[in-house]
Design a binder for these strands. Sequence first.
DNA 1: GATGAATGAGTGTTCATTCAT
DNA 2: CATGAATGAACACTCATTCAT
Lengths: 199, 199, 199, 199
Amino acid sequence: MRNVVPFVKAMKKTPRADAQRNLDSLLEAAKAVFAESGVDAPVREIASRAGVGIATVYRHFPQRAELIAAVYRREIDACAAAAQVLAREHEPFEALTRWLHRFTSLIATKRGLAASLNAQDPTYQAVPAYFREHLEPALQSLLGAAAAAGQVRKDVDTYELLRGIGSLCIPVSEVGPGYTRRMVDLLIDGLRYGARAAP
Amino acid sequence: MRNVVPFVKAMKKTPRADAQRNLDSLLEAAKAVFAESGVDAPVREIASRAGVGIATVYRHFPQRAELIAAVYRREIDACAAAAQVLAREHEPFEALTRWLHRFTSLIATKRGLAASLNAQDPTYQAVPAYFREHLEPALQSLLGAAAAAGQVRKDVDTYELLRGIGSLCIPVSEVGPGYTRRMVDLLIDGLRYGARAAP
Amino acid sequence: MRNVVPFVKAMKKTPRADAQRNLDSLLEAAKAVFAESGVDAPVREIASRAGVGIATVYRHFPQRAELIAAVYRREIDACAAAAQVLAREHEPFEALTRWLHRFTSLIATKRGLAASLNAQDPTYQAVPAYFREHLEPALQSLLGAAAAAGQVRKDVDTYELLRGIGSLCIPVSEVGPGYTRRMVDLLIDGLRYGARAAP
Amino acid sequence: MRNVVPFVKAMKKTPRADAQRNLDSLLEAAKAVFAESGVDAPVREIASRAGVGIATVYRHFPQRAELIAAVYRREIDACAAAAQVLAREHEPFEALTRWLHRFTSLIATKRGLAASLNAQDPTYQAVPAYFREHLEPALQSLLGAAAAAGQVRKDVDTYELLRGIGSLCIPVSEVGPGYTRRMVDLLIDGLRYGARAAP
DNA sequence: GATGAATGAGTGTTCATTCAT
DNA sequence: CATGAATGAACACTCATTCAT
């Protein structure tokens, strides 16, 4: 009941509870802006898109990397969590493939995530750290299972694969739709090729 | 009258020849700066490194993309030319592999080339255009030969492969040395995997 | 009804007494912050140091000058009071000298007091007003006594002397320890010089 | 002849030669702004007052301290140079007194000079450095001569005296005109007092 | 009364680009 | 042709102050 907000009041301002609401708009806006203009987009743009003052952005996220991380954290979590489900429901290679495609969607639909992963600026390092910490174990288990089953080669580094696929997700001009998918599939085939050569 | 150059002035500068000299220093400087600070480096830095005025940069290259293109043109040409030599000296798959590694070096050692290829800014499109125009045919012939020999699959788009490998050349943090090489090799194995599966 | 405080709430906070407690922490915190970062220090720093909300600072001291004044009021009072004691216990010139040194300590140890005295901002004028109102009479009596005793010249304006010494208390870089003391002593000697010349 | 600027041309823009003109307006404007609002005045204000773009300020003076130094350099030089003239034309104590008053004018009329001397910000250190480097020797010679003549005491540190007088030049509210002069004279008398006491 | 979230004006600083010499 | 001075838009970030809870 406490969450039922009277109509009129809701249209006004709603401060205290709006801290959360603001935070949400902020994350929403940032996600959109990052997708459009990359993670280097002006703070002002994010703020105005969210309908809040600039300082509000700084209040919630003193460092830009914290905002970036916050924006992608949930999606990274969801993607990592998907690994267990896929492992339960499919045989190893199928699970691996599906997850890699899932991962591909994560990166490909978030312009800016890929960019922030490659940023040399130390300010941004919170993002790749979180990224690695959560996604590497997810891939690790799937890759290990598929390798154990002799379906893919054993000598591929998990994190490198993650980053390699991440790079392939960077949008490229003048290529047809499905380019990323095809490249990722090619890489996956590369994983299988090795499995045959060294059983 | 306009062409009459006062004696004294003529002894100071040698206009015609200096134009070329300036252009050369400019390309040299730009290459170095691009390698160090990326293609977004301040124009001023390039100009001062070349020992010329800023306006001179703009005279020769009104658009930044033209400078970038000019900087990489020669290297792109050389890489493209290598294809023919390799085709003559090695059997198809070997030639293809060697050339892809050659191409990898081209991209990997030119910080900024890869970036400018992916730039969304329409200003930069001269670079990918030149890039595609010269390198696609080179890879096309090698890829076609290897495919004809049944060594690699036939269904891979040349330009996409070019861009895919290009993306894999983007430097990535927290990976060991040789990361790019390993990823490219994985992709090449992907090419072979298909060949076996569908001979 | 307004005064009826629900039990639970009453156990959490003790409103009436806390008002004073807050005020005290505020003054304490402000004194510390002023000493460290000058009187221009961010309000937020004072608030957080005092463990209260920002708005609480504004409630008690809508104008920054009022806070400054409140911070230094007690010390100004104590210094002023010292004059009478010194006058009782020492002969005129000795009492004067001792008090001026006492006054020097007051200013010198309160970074920001001196600054706020010289502020052009009309917002700050409450401080010099209080300052003058209390300290000028104190010095006046000591100076008058010493002058009457022929130990110092008669033609020096009390308030000017107060401010002159105040200025000498401003910390200065690249001078040895004891600089302020030496300068103030020099000024005091100036007071005596006149006495001899015009007895 | 080269300096004769055609009227019409002069009224237009005059770029190359105007570099100097701009620099002059800049110094002029900065001096005025420093006098009005202190050396912390917004760069924008100086720029607009000088009628130039902001970046022009930064071109000439990348560091604010450089601008401050440039603004006061000439006046410091002139003041330092005056010492020799005074020493030639007056007997030691008279020369010393006159120079100290000259020095007082330098500081007192340049609101902001005094301030920048006391700045803790390391950015500003160029100013006190230049200040000390030039004015300390000037005072040193005058002070030494007067001390040798037994007219002032010997145990006063030159630089401390310089800074002490500098502090006395800080404008103070609610004092009558001539306050600084009176305080400085009092300090000078302090110098003489010691001379009598210890000949 | 107390809170702290929100605000937005203000400031330093960088950089691409133009233009008179 | 080359020069580099000048420009001003753009951006990050801080902080005093207000206001709904």
